[in-house]
């Protein structure tokens, strides 16, 4: 068991494994996003209440779900880092923050573009929108805190604590539409038991959500590799990597021209 954890938690293994996995995830992600777009924009019928404007759901809902999902990943990784001092967990949390911030921004922007024609306003200070905006500031705060503290170990610890404290905001976002009366419509697909979205709209929405998840996975793997390279820059295994220790390519860098 511990051997297993050691193997999968070791930086060289994760670096190589992420590099091997990422292209496949990227390819599947692209295929799923394109089919979701085709079914959502061209095949799916218009909504009887909202007309064509409802199609914003195909980007708004995946972005909003991922904005919360990425935060939960970040908080869990932060907890693992604080409890077991696993450096890799800190790398996961650090790599997730900018991705989560971008999804939160996207959820707010597309929500605004949907709110204007449906509610008559770009923005209201209700529970859902305000707590989602707070989520964006939590991501910014996390990144700012990391950047502000000089010593990497203290920066990682402080940021992990912030991520854990901020996780209380996630259930607030989720239940905000039930707790407070608001213009925002309640959840479309999470009501258990009753099916309240037709498959012609539900399938493209599901594809877009999976596509966004895979995009997160892809970008996370790349960012993890970057994080590992930076932290392990002095390790001998980095110097021995074929993509690093390539004499042909490196002769250009050193300016010598051996023929």
């Amino acid at each position: 068991m511990f051997k297993w954890i050691h193997r999968f938690g070791s930086a060289p293994f994760v670096y190589r494994f992420a590099g091997a996995l990422a292209p496949w995830i990227g390819f599947v992600c692209l295929a799923i996003l394109l089919s979701g777009l085709y079914l959502g924009l061209i095949v799916a019928p218009e909504d009887y209440e909202q007309g064509e404007s409802y199609r914003i759901i195909y980007v708004h809902v995946p972005a909003a779900i991922l904005s919360m999902f990425v935060y939960v990943v970040m908080a869990v990784a932060s907890a693992v880092f604080l409890i077991w001092r696993l450096k890799l967990a800190d790398i996961v949390a650090q790599a997730s923050a900018p991705i989560g911030a971008s999804f939160t921004f996207l959820a707010l922007a597309t929500g605004s573009l949907w709110g204007k024609p449906m509610w008559g306003t770009w923005w209201i200070w209700d529970g859902r929108l305000t707590s989602e905006l707070l989520l964006l500031f939590l991501y910014f705060g996390y990144m700012a805190l990391r950047a502000a503290i000089e010593h990497p170990q203290s920066a990682a610890k402080a940021a992990a604590v912030l991520a854990l404290v901020g996780v209380v905001n996630i259930p607030v976002i989720h239940y905000s539409v039930e707790w407070w009366s608001t213009l925002h419509q309640p959840a479309t697909i999470t009501k258990m038991g009753e099916r309240n979205i037709h498959p012609s709209m539900g399938i493209p929405l599901g594809l877009m959500i999976v596509g966004f998840q895979l995009l997160y996975a892809y970008v996370l793997l790349i960012r993890m590799r970057t994080g590992i390279l930076k932290r392990e820059s002095r390790a001998s295994w980095v110097a021995q990597l074929p993509e690093v220790n390539n004499t042909m390519a490196n002769s250009k860098l050193s300016g010598t021209n051996r023929v």
Binding site: E52, I56, S102, A109, W114, K116, P117, Y218, I222
Partner: peptide
């Protein structure tokens, strides 16, 4: 888009920009 073109298309465009930027920036930094 049933008269909603100015809301639907910017939503998809901004999504494209954010997704592509995510992939592109992470690769540049790597």
């Amino acid at each position: 888009m049933g008269g909603y073109a100015w809301y639907v298309w910017p939503s998809f465009l901004i999504t494209l920009v954010v997704l592509v930027a995510n992939v592109w920036l992470s690769r540049i930094q790597f």
